Amino acid sequence: MTIGIVKFYNDQKGFGFIQPEDGSKDVFVHATALERAGLGSLSQGQKVSFDTAEDRRSGKMAVNNIQFA
């Protein structure tokens, strides 16, 4: 799993971005990933660990499995 910090998350729109600690490109996170993990929301600056997978709709990499670090 990758460790990162929540850069932005909008509850109303249901998406945001996580900045990986290793300096790689920000990763998109959708509300459905939080629902699958049993999480309600994310806060800016919160530390999380996550896996990524290709989003079947967009074809881009997105958070697949997430938990609080």
Rank of each mutant, 00 (worst) to 15 (best):
R57I: 05
I18W: 00
A62S: 15
G59H: 00
G4R: 02
S58C: 08
T2N: 15
G59Q: 09
A37V: 13
V29K: 02
G23N: 05
G40T: 07
L42M: 13
N10D: 10
Q46Y: 04
K25M: 07
M61D: 12
L34I: 07
I18S: 01
G4M: 07
F15I: 06
Q67V: 13
Y9T: 02
M1C: 15
D55L: 09
V6G: 06
I66F: 08
K25H: 07
Q46W: 11
S58I: 06
N65C: 10
V63E: 05
A69N: 09
T2L: 13
I5F: 05
V6H: 01
I18D: 04
K60G: 07
T32D: 08
S24T: 08
R56Y: 11
R56W: 08
G23E: 10
M61H: 14
G38I: 09
I3R: 15
A62R: 00
N64P: 01
T32R: 15
S43P: 04
N65E: 10
A69V: 11
N10S: 13
Q19Y: 08
V27R: 03
V6C: 03
F17T: 03
T52R: 01
I18L: 02
Q12L: 10
N64G: 13
V27L: 03
F15D: 06
A53C: 09
G14T: 03
I66P: 02
T52Q: 02
Q19W: 06
Q12H: 10
M61F: 01
G23M: 10
Y9M: 05
Q46P: 04
S49N: 09
H30A: 15
F8T: 07
Q67D: 12
P20R: 06
P20K: 02
N64E: 10
M1A: 15
D55V: 11
A37L: 13
D51T: 12
R36V: 14
E21Q: 06
R56I: 08
G16T: 04
N65H: 12
V48H: 01
I18C: 00
V29I: 15
E35P: 12
S49L: 11
G14L: 02
D55I: 09
A53S: 12
G59T: 05
F17L: 08
A69W: 03
T2W: 14
R56L: 12
S24K: 09
F17S: 03
Q19R: 05
S24Y: 06
Q12E: 11
S58E: 09
A53G: 08
A31K: 04
F50Q: 00
G59A: 08
Q12C: 08
I18A: 00
F8A: 08
L39M: 15
G16D: 07
A53Q: 12
K60V: 05
G14R: 01
D26Q: 02
L39W: 01
G23P: 00
E21K: 08
Q12R: 14
E21P: 01
T2C: 11
N64H: 01
Q46R: 09
K25L: 15
Q19N: 04
V6E: 01
R36Q: 13
F17E: 00
F15K: 02
F50G: 05
I5P: 01
K47E: 12
L42V: 06
D11K: 07
D51G: 04
A37E: 12
E35G: 15
N64M: 06
N64K: 00
R36G: 12
A33Y: 01
A53I: 03
S49M: 12
G45D: 14
R56E: 05
L42E: 04
R57W: 11
F15Y: 14
Q46N: 00
H30G: 13
